[in-house]
Design a protein around this nucleic acid. Structure first.
Length: 905
RNA sequence: GCCUUGGUGGCGGAAUCGGUAGACGCGCUGGUCUCAAACACCAGUGGGGCGACCCGUGCCGGUUCGACCCCGGCCCAAGGUACCA
């Protein structure tokens, strides 16, 4: 038999599916392990070789855990609602469901070829009504809950009503007033805020869906707009989201990203009395630098602040109105592009510094944000660069407060030095002055210590069709949840997917979009709605009575290993944690955190190839000669380039333009240039996993993807290296089959062979557990080289080898495992045990005097005499690695130099 | 600007705790097999020198018997974030 990967892979894929080999069943006699991939959005382009990287890694780990005796849950599904399918529907009229299902089928067939060990009986799709029923259910729970600051958790809204009733703030209200009051507390609430409005997409977007003023999907400009929208009170969980991160096994960089996004800052709120004519108002500001209050020379309001109207003097009314109109017209993008241009207008009123009693002017400027803090600040130009720029632009005074600082050119923002010009704070360091100032403010009733968060509530409405409908109807204008028994509220059929002529969302086109005779909400939920709790649904995917049963949740609990891209750090991973905590508060799930360990796999970049056309001709010059001509660089399909050598005939056939192409060769070949770029169609550098499976097989693909480099690092794909791992599999095959004859023997292995095997077991175990898959593959290759060298065909060595390797290359190993006489799948084998005795010899320790002053300990075999120790040290001029007595000792002897001996306990 | 992660041969990357830098693979060179090519196999492969040797992990300095690794100061790249008071 020869190694025929095509028939072997097809055979075992069929076998696994037919025998439900990977079906996960709750089994309390075994420890559980939950391995999850971030489920994909099925795009029209299909998978390229970059996509399966994480899936292969998680599959390897799942298979490893199974061999180690764990009951592994390893499911897969599709994040199927989303903008691209809907944009496509608008352009073509094709229903988004049709394209989505087509894409899913293509994804599935591509994944099936790679031999993943998913339990497909648990597949979920977010666009399936049986699934989004539970997204809607959770929304209703959020609508019917509030965040109780006293118990520091979400509670049913009834407890709030009781509280309000006790305070006499309930019974006197009418139904509308009650609804409006509760709306200020609900976890899922409707509120008017400035939102990111994307005119091109016709919808609002969440903060994490906008980057540098453009939509992440599509790259369209985004502007600020005040709108009434559904929102989730994520900000209530800011502190818990921050605190609970400590115990998670995530990388520091990812934790930092979340920390920055949550943006906790400690400071204090201070009340400034502001006089506008004969009226006086209490304006609260937030600052982290209470110590600088003696340097306040003006105050600033955000243009959107509610104080603006009250604090504008009649004389300034016109100027302020003009400024507001100008600021409003600007899009977010324009604000960003006008690199820190200072704008502002004087309001006409004056505030009183609560500590000094000094009078300072109140200005209005867009550098102050309405959404953060109180939308009003005290400005200390000497010690804040933004205030400094503003003071310089409008000629406002600057008072330095730190001894020896020079503020003639720029502000002194650093938090160190000794205070001056600051009354009772004089002589203190900044670190001492901040708490001292806050204490003073609190004691004198001028304000209070306050912690602020950058994290905002999540905008939860989208004016789109292809998403979950809200289970909300408007009963006489009052938003009311649909009865739980009537869920799901299914997406209605409509004939066009555009917004209506009057600018309403597409759902307004639906006929009879009503419930109990009242109109239903016409917005739909955003993409992150369906992905926030999907990991829970996999635990119990067919349950129609609950999101997840107590039994299933109690067994699987949460995700032990979560794999996916780092781009979800501030979106999905925050929302999911929030959603989980909410369900935890209400007692629906048992764990506080959804994902215990998280790994971000790196991006796989493409390696593009170029040809060089001499300008004005159809002649192409080889890379090494191109500098002799004037050329343009043209991307060429990497699939017709081998080893940077262009297949010129294939090139002529590639595009009609190149049919008559002529070539200037070097050494008879056309050499292409190359570059590392993002893998994309337009650069003709996309490598399809199907092609690799056709030419080399899935086992080779899996091994090569892991061999490419560290999992978490971005790295370029270059198909030319794949022959190496393919060769490895062929050599493995030859250990079993010599010229087609099965040649495995039951001979006893030699000590050298056992050493090779056990060294490998130790390495595979340690490196796999550390997710160092590239070095594990290297270890397999080293072992293979040694076994080939020994001409080893012994069952006692090969069987454990095949079991271990099956986590990487399941198809060939399944075949070989059966060839060894096993009936069952290798999935049910046990990971071989590492026996130290094969790599470690008995030892005792001898002291060695060295250099006359330093004393080291060398560990050597017990049988060695002191004379032999001396001798072996001298002999160890070339070799240096000793493994002895469970501790590694390295002895390095460089002739004529210092000898270094390292001892490990 | 700030935060994070990186920088090692022609290329992807190894080096577990501070201990022979360059494992493993690609590519390249030479050889065997072949009419020939492909495949496969064997040998060599950081740079310099005939050689003994010398130089080498972004740059400068420090700690150490010894530094890719630790410390200080820079440079560069990738990702995140940005009027967050």
């Amino acid at each position: 038999m020869e190694y025929d990967f095509k028939s072997i892979e097809a055979k075992w894929q069929k076998y696994w599916a037919e025998n439900n080999v990977f079906k996960a069943v709750e089994d309390t006699s075994k420890p559980k392990y939950y391995v999850l991939d971030m489920f994909p959005y099925p795009s029209g382009a299909g998978l390229h070789v970059g996509h399966p990287l994480g899936y292969i890694a998680s599959d390897i780990y799942s298979r490893y855990k199974r061999l180690c005796g764990f009951n592994v849950l390893h499911p897969m599904g599709y994040d199927a609602f989303g903008l691209p399918a809907e944009q496509y529907a608008i352009q073509t009229g094709q229903h988004p469901e049709t394209t989505t299902v087509n894409n899913i089928n293509r994804y599935r067939s591509q994944m099936d070829r790679i031999g993943f060990s998913y339990d497909w009986s648990r597949e979920i799709r977010t666009c399936d009504p049986a699934y989004y029923k539970w997204t809607q259910w959770a929304f209703i729970k959020m609508f019917n809950s509030w965040y109780n600051p006293e118990t520091d958790k979400a509670e049913p809204i009834e407890t709030l009503i009781e509280k309000l009733r006790g305070e006499g703030r309930w019974d006197s209200l009418n139904e509308k007033e009650q609804s409006d009051l509760l709306m200020q507390y609900r976890i899922a609430y409707q509120g008017e805020t400035a939102v990111n409005w994307c005119p091109a997409l016709g919808t609002v977007l969440a903060n994490d869906e906008v980057k540098e003023g453009y939509s992440v999907r599509g790259g369209h400009p985004v502007e600020q707009k005040k709108m009434k929208q559904w929102q989730l009170r994520v900000s209530a969980y800011a502190e818990r989201l921050l605190k609970d991160m400590e115990n998670l096994d995530w990388t520091d960089s990812l934790k930092d990203m979340q920390r920055n996004w949550i943006g906790r800052s400690r400071g204090c709120e201070m009340v400034f009395k502001v006089q506008n004519g004969d009226k006086e108002y209490d304006v609260t500001i937030f600052t982290t630098r209470a110590d600088t209050v003696f340097g306040v020379t003006f105050m600033v309001l955000a243009p959107e602040s509610e104080w603006v109207e009250k604090l504008t003097s009649p004389a300034q009314k016109e100027a302020v109105a003009e400024y507001l109109a100008m600021a409003k017209k600007k899009t977010e993008r324009e604000r960003l592009s006008e690199t820190r241009k200072v704008t502002g207008v004087f309001s006409g009123s004056y505030g009183i510094n609560p500590l000094t009693g000094e009078k300072v002017p109140v200005w209005i400027s867009e550098y102050v944000l309405s959404g953060y803090g109180t939308g009003a600040i005290m400005a200390v130009p000497a010690h804040d660069s933004r205030d400094y720029a503003f003071a310089k632009a409008f000629n406002l005074p600057i008072i330095p407060l730190i001894e020896g600082c020079d503020v003639s050119q720029q502000s002194f923002d650093a938090k160190d030095g000794v205070m001056c010009n600051s009354g009772f704070l004089n002589g203190l360091t900044v670190a001492e002055a901040i708490p001292a100032a806050i204490r003073y403010v609190e004691e004198h009733g001028l304000g209070r210590a306050k912690v602020n968060y950058r994290l905002r509530d999540a905008i939860f409405s989208r004016q789109r069709y292809w998403g979950e409908p809200f289970p909300i109807y408007y009963k006489d204008g009052i938003p009311t949840p649909v009865d739980e028994a009537d869920l799901p509220v299914t997406l209605p059929e409509i004939d066009e997917f555009k917004p209506t002529e009057s600018g309403e969302p597409p759902l307004a086109r639906a006929k009879n979009w009503t419930y109990k005779g009242y109109p239903l909400e016409t917005s739909t939920m955003p993409g992150f709605a369906g992905s926030s709790a999907y990991y829970l649904r996999y635990m119990d995917p067919h349950n129609d009575k609950a999101l997840v049963s107590g039994d299933a949740d109690g067994y699987w609990r949460n995700v032990d290993l979560y794999l996916g891209g780092a781009e979800h750090a501030t979106g999905h991973l925050i929302y999911s944690r929030f959603w989980n905590k909410f369900l935890y508060d209400l007692g629906y799930v048992v764990e506080k955190e959804p994902f215990k360990k998280l790994i971000n796999q790196g991006m796989i970049q493409g390696r593009s190839n170029f040809v060089y056309r001499i300008i004005g001709t159809n002649t192409f010059v080889s890379y090494g000669l191109k500098d002799d001509y004037k050329t343009t660089e043209i991307h060429v399909d990497v699939n017709i380039v081998h080893n940077d050598r262009l297949d010129t005939e294939a090139f002529k056939a590639w595009m009609p333009d190149f049919k008559d192409a002529e070539f200037i060769l070097e050494n008879g070949e056309y050499i292409c240039g190359w570059a590392i770029e993002k893998m994309s169609k337009s650069m003709f550098n996309v490598v399809n996993p199907d092609m690799i499976c056709d030419n080399y097989g899935a086992d080779t693909l899996r091994l090569y993807e892991m061999f490419l480099g560290p999992l978490e690092q971005s790295k370029p794909w270059d198909t030319k290296g794949i022959d190496g791992v393919n060769r490895f599999l062929k050599r493995l095959w030859r250990l079993f089959y010599d010229h087609g004859e099965f040649c495995v023997t039951s001979d006893k292995p030699t000590p050298a062979e056992l050493k090779t095997l056990h060294k490998l077991i130790g390495k595979v175990k340690a490196d796999t557990e550390a997710f160092s898959f590239n070095t594990t593959v290297a270890a397999f290759m080293i072992a293979m080289n040694e076994l080939v060298e020994e001409d080893c065909h012994k069952r006692e060595i090969l069987e454990p080898l095949v079991i271990m390797l099956s986590i990487y290359c399941p198809h060939i190993c399944e075949e070989l495992y059966h060839a060894l006489g096993h009936e069952d799948s290798v999935t049910y084998a046990s990971f071989p045990e590492y026996v130290e005795a094969y790599t470690v010899e008995n030892s005792c320790t001898y002291p060695v005097q060295f250099n006359g002053k330093m004393r080291f300990t060398v560990e050597l075999p017990k049988s060695a005499s002191p004379a032999e120790v001396e001798k072996s040290v001298r002999e160890m001029e070339q070799t240096s690695r000793y493994v002895a007595g469970g501790s590694i000792v390295k002895v390095i002897v460089v002739p004529g130099k210092i000898v270094n001996i390292v001892v490990k306990q």
